[in-house]
Structures are given as C-alpha cells and as structure tokens.
C-alpha cells in the first residue's frame, strides 16, 4: 500500500472535518419543541376560567355540606351572605378578569402574540 503524502493527509483531514458527527438529535425533535411551546403559550379561555370558578364554588358547597351538616344550615349561611352578594360576585369576577388579562399580557410579550 502506498504512503500518504503531506498534501493527501491535509486533504483527507479537511474532508473529514467537514463531516457531520454521527450522533444527532431524535428525529421528532422539532415536533417536541413545538408541542412544548404550544403548551406554554396556549391561552386559557374566559369560559374555562368561569368553569373553574363554578367548580370551585361547587367544591366549597360540597365540603360545607359534608363537614358542617345539613341543607338547612347551608341555606342559613347563604342567607347571612346574601346582603354581600354583589361584593362577593364582583370580587370573584375581578379575580377572574385579573387572571385573564394577565394571560393576555403574557401572550403579547411572546413572539407568537
């Protein structure tokens, strides 16, 4: 077998240096990134916030019934809270709106808008 000249060695080296390394990322890498991003940026809808609010209220009512007795006590408690209904409703609505606009703000700061 013939010896390699210096020029051949250099050419061989430069040829090899331009080759991609054999290891690489998984074939579905870009899909993983896009999925991760879409999960991060998916905005929660207003309807979902209200649904969560209703579920939360239902949960509180169920816990109240379970731990503190019967339906009569619950209606009495509701009657006590009735004069403050607007304060309670507006406070809850205010909290939901803060969450919603916070999401909107985050979305605007992200490139996908």
């Amino acid at each position: 077998m013939k010896d390699f000249t210096e020029e051949e060695i250099e050419r061989l080296l430069f040829h090899e240096l331009q080759k991609q390394p054999p290891v690489t990322l998984s074939p579905e890498f870009s899909e993983k990134v896009v999925t991760r991003l879409s999960r991060k940026t998916r905005p929660a809808s207003m309807g979902m916030y209200f649904l969560l609010l209703l579920l939360g209220l239902a949960g509180v009512a169920a816990a109240y019934l379970y731990f503190f007795g019967n339906m009569q006590q619950l209606t009495e408690s509701v009657a006590v809270l009735l004069p403050y209904k607007w304060v309670i409703l507006f406070t809850l609505l205010f909290l939901v709106l803060i969450q919603y606009f916070d999401q909107q703000l985050i979305r605007r700061k992200m490139p996908l808008g």
Binding site: T24, L25, S30, V33, V34, P111
Partner: peptide, 22 residues
C-alpha cells in the same frame, strides 16, 4: 413566526437543530 405560525417555527427548528446540537 411572529404572526403566530407555529409550523414555521417547527421549520426553523428543523433548519438549525444540527447547529444547535453540535
């Protein structure tokens, strides 16, 4: 991508994943 096209971002990832990986 800035207009909201996530598939376009997927193309960008595919185009530059080797560079980033290396």
């Amino acid at each position: 991508i800035l207009a909201g096209d996530l598939h376009a971002f997927g193309r960008l990832v595919t185009g530059y994943e080797k560079l980033v990986f290396n």
